[in-house]
């Protein structure tokens, strides 16, 4: 279970102060596919960066199974990171390494037996349907295939949580569909909790059981996807869902 409590993130430099997140609180339960939707600049990427500990919040807490992960450092932080997989919009694959080497990367950070690594990589590539591209380089793959590699890599260390930052925003409709199917497959088969940041309604609608709407750095609505889609309360949710005419 992930509890986000009063999370606030402020970026400031000499010239300006930006409130990226203000008093954000929500809970993601084990096994959820939790969608966080919002327009560009709403703060959703900052939220995901806080969750993946790439950014430390200005105030507030992020509890992963009761442990506050937002203030961890060094070895403790690295240990928690192995329980979380992250998938990025831009894939962020190692371009000089093969598909198999990319997937093996997180496993080789530990002193793992080479045979065991190889076996795990084969398993993971099978899971994402890329067994035949094990020795290809990322530059030889399509966008959808690259995202599958990134997904396999994120799942390598058996994380309990998968964080996805706009995982399908760079993909066409058909490829988006297949990546989403894969995500819900993984959720079902492996029981991994998934948090997806997106600006695409379709993504939330098709695979998320719960969702939050974020706007101007605050969560303004959250709950069951179905309920929100049928009866949006906030004006911004209504606008996003097309239930209210733009004025």
């Amino acid at each position: 279970m992930i509890e986000i409590q009063n999370l606030t993130k402020t970026f400031s430099d000499k010239h300006s102060t930006v409130h990226a997140l203000q008093d954000v609180s929500t809970t993601v339960y084990d096994g959820d596919i939790f969608g966080i939707i919002g327009m560009s600049g709403a703060g959703k990427s900052t939220l995901l960066r806080c969750l993946s500990m790439l950014e430390s919040p200005t105030s507030g807490k992020i509890l992963l199974n009761g442990v506050d992960i937002s203030s961890l450092k060094g070895a403790q932080q690295r240990a928690i990171r192995k329980q979380m997989g992250v998938v990025f919009q831009g894939y962020n694959l190692l371009m000089q390494k093969t598909v198999a080497e990319n997937v093996a990367f997180p496993l080789k950070l530990e002193k793992n037996d080479a045979k065991a690594v190889e076996q795990r990589v084969t398993e993971l590539l099978q899971l994402v349907g890329l067994s035949d591209r094990a020795n290809a380089y990322p530059a030889q793959l399509s966008g959808g295939q690259k995202q599958r590699v990134a997904l396999a890599r994120a799942l390598a260390s058996n994380p309990s949580v998968l964080l996805c930052d706009e995982p399908t925003s760079a993909l066409d409709a058909l490829t988006t569909r297949s990546v989403l199917d894969l995500l819900s497959d993984i959720n079902r088969k492996l029981g991994v909790t998934i948090i997806i940041i997106t600006h695409e309604l379709e993504v939330v609608h098709s695979i998320c059981n719960r969702m939050a709407v974020i706007d101007e750095s605050r969560i303004i609505e959250q709950g069951d996807t179905k309920t929100i889609f049928e009866h949006p309360q906030s004006p911004i949710a209504k606008l996003l869902l097309g239930k209210e005419n733009r004025t």
Binding site: K82, V86, L94, P106, S157
Partner: peptide
């Protein structure tokens, strides 16, 4: 890519 590696621990 560096951030991805960091996120993997």
């Amino acid at each position: 890519v560096i951030e991805a590696a960091r996120s993997m621990g």
